[in-house]
Each structure stands twice: as structure tokens, then as C-alpha cells.
Computed example of a mutant assay.
Amino acid sequence: MASATATRDPEDTFCVLDRTGIDALVRVLRARGRTVVGPTARDGAIVLAELESADELPYGWGVELEGGHYRLVRRTDGAAFAHSAGPQSWKNFLLPQRVRQWTADRGPDGGLTVRAERHDPASYAFLGVRPCDLRAIAVQDRVLTGGRHKDDAYRARRTGAFLIAVECTEPGATCFCVSMGTGPSAGPGYDIAMTEVVDDAGHRFLARAGTAEGAEVLDGLPRRAADPATRTTAAEAVEAAAGRMGRTMPPTDLRALLAGTMDAERWNDVAARCLTCGNCTMACPTCFCTTTEDVTDLTGDHAERWSRWDSCYDLDFSQLHGGPVRESGRSRYRQWLTHKLGTWYDQFGSSGCVGCGRCIVWCPVGIDITEEAHALHQEALARGTAPREEPS
């Protein structure tokens, strides 16, 4: 669902941008009427926000990550994209936390006039989309624009969004995109993909177009032909990143593993630690659950219906007439993990996890999805019920 459907051969579109080229990229996109959103250092984190210029990119900032731990750290090389996923994802813009669906007003005759909310197409340009997040956008596209239950508000924001992916050359301690097949190189779906290179030859970005519009934008920037040394250095940096993932998933069929663990003892262990706060679902770039809430003014003459994010950790999430289906923290964590890694395949044909590690970092007690998957795998091995291991 890229902004232009015509895909070009990346080999024909490689070029090199320097910081002047990145500055021009932001200016050109804004001149085209796009809202440019990208990473910036703010409030002690790398957050996603509207950028007025490339000077707002987090040049010289990196991050220190672990379970339940996040800290900005200064870098000495001035890199702009040498940091891992922050607390937000592009979901915050494509699927905002609250969206009004309709309003109703009572007229003088006592009748009600209901007006559906108009969802005008947005014109976003996302700068700095990690490969894992590029896959996450594709996952949400499948969920929210496919099947019978489409989200028109999401489609209005997503259609025409211009995606500039930045390949990962420095994974964080909680990253495991290689295990999920989502990085560190950029897969399909981008308009422009870049790899940042900082070495003795200078600070530069190897760029390639993935669509006709991406090529058109690159053609309007100050750039130079891609030299062999830059192409080699960029490729080696991405390949090296693949070997430095901070986390892994067990080498097995996760879908089959999770299907056979409904009564595993490990769920009791994680239930003793889980606060059922829902932080993991809020930070996850693919979690999509919403609920509706109705509000009225004090007169009762005006009412609105809003859609807002919800979480399967909420006790009321599975509320039926007799009470919640999943009362215990054990059952709610099990629901989240088995859906994310297992039954998501049954619904949408892929995993719901892209290996970004946000759920690990932003869990206040440091529960680690990869640690839990490994523990479930070891328990299944001990029981003799583990599925066949996947080839490495």
C-alpha cells in the first residue's frame, strides 16, 4: 500500500545523500504538502513527531535498552538513526489513540441529527521507518484494510503515506527482528530506503527508490552516484547488525508451540510477575484492539461516539453478561502471547510480532516475550510435546 504502485528495480536507483541531501529531503516533502514525521530527541526519549526541518533529527543520540529500562546516551559519531525503536510507533499516527466516529444533535423539534465523522485523506511522509516497523505497517494494513471489517479512518491516513525506511545497522539489546524475518534490511513497501554510513570517508546515506514517486523525490535532491565503497560498507553494516541481535526466539514453529501450551506451568510463573497494565499492547506497533465510548454534554442535546485503543489486559475486554471470560492475569497474558505469536496466523496469515522489542523495554517489570517463548519451548521439550525445530 505504498504511495505509488509502480515498483522500480532498486539496482537502478542507488544514490548517496549527505546531510545537505537529508535537509533537502524534508524541505521537498513539506513543499509537496506532506506532514513529515520522524524521530527526534525529546523528554528523555527518541519520540516520533512532526519535523519542520532535518535539524530536528536526533543526530548524535543513541539509546541504552534492557527489560524495563530505556535511556538516551550520547554518541560520538553524530549518527541520526543509530538508535532502536522508541516508545511510539507509526501506529500512533495511522491509528490514533482516540478517533471520533459520529456526532448527534437534538433539534428544536426533539429529533436527532446524526453526522458521521468525515475522514479526509492525510498526506504523511514517515522518515526513519525501521524495517521491523515497515513490516508492522504491512501487518496493520492487512488487519485494518482487509477482510469484511475495514477501518475507513485508518485507510484515509494510510492511503498515500510516503514511507522512508532506514535500515538497521545498530540493533538494541532487546531487538530480535532476525528471528521474525522482519529485518535488519528493508523489505517491500517503502518509497525510499536508506542506510546510514559513518566512517572515515564521512557521514552519508546510501539511498534507493522503491516506487516511482520515491525516484522522483530522489531526483530532486542534491545527490551523487553511489560509489562501490559506500555500497559495500552499507551492506556489510546491515549484515553485521543481523549477527548482533540482542534477543532471539526459539528455533521452532511458534504457531505450533503456542497451540500446545495452554496448560503450561510457565503461565503461572509469568502471572506472578505481570501487572496486567497493558503497556506491552500500547507500545506494540501491531496491536489494534479498540473499543467505543459515548459521551454527551450536560444538556443531553449533543452526543458523540469515539473509538479508542483498548487492551486484552483490561478486565472488561472480555466482559459478557456473566462477567469477564478471562478473569486472571494468567489467562490474559496467555491470550496476548498466544494470539501474537500463534493464532494471529489463523486470522491474518502472519505473525503479529515483528521483533521490535518494545514490549520488553516498556514493561515496568521487564517481562521478556523472547524469554517466555524460550521457557515454553523448554517446557514442551521436557514434556516431549515440542514441535519440530526450524532449520537455522
Score class of each variant (00 low, 15 high):
E196P: 12
V28P: 07
D368M: 15
A80D: 05
G187A: 09
F317Q: 02
R115V: 15
I360M: 11
G107F: 00
S328Q: 05
V114N: 10
V365F: 02
R106C: 10
V99Y: 06
T13P: 10
P222F: 10
R34I: 11
R115N: 13
V114E: 09
A272K: 10
M282C: 07
V16W: 02
L206T: 00
A226Q: 04
G111M: 06
R266N: 13
T233G: 08
S328K: 01
A125N: 08
A207E: 02
C168A: 05
V197S: 05
Q347W: 02
A234Q: 00
R71S: 07
C132Q: 06
L95C: 13
G300I: 08
G147Q: 15
T182F: 02
T40K: 13
T7Y: 07
R118F: 04
G189R: 14
S185W: 02
S53T: 15
C274Y: 01
S328H: 02
S331M: 03
L94G: 15
A80M: 03
G246H: 01
G349D: 10
A380I: 12
T76Q: 07
R204D: 00
R27G: 09
T20K: 08
Y154L: 03
T103L: 03
L51E: 14
R224Y: 05
Q378E: 08
F81Q: 01
L315I: 00
P58M: 06
V16N: 04
Y313K: 07
W102I: 11
E11P: 10
D199I: 00
I369V: 15
V354F: 04
P96Y: 03
D368P: 15
H377G: 02
A229G: 00
E50P: 14
F205L: 04
L221A: 09
G342W: 07
P387R: 05
G181T: 05
R106W: 05
P285M: 04
A125Q: 03
V270K: 12
W90H: 12
E389D: 12
R135K: 12
A271D: 14
R158F: 06
R247I: 07
D120K: 09
D269K: 09
D23Y: 02
G202N: 07
C277D: 13
D141I: 01
G67S: 12
E64C: 10
G260W: 01
E64A: 15
V270P: 14
V16F: 02
A234C: 03
R255E: 08
T169C: 01
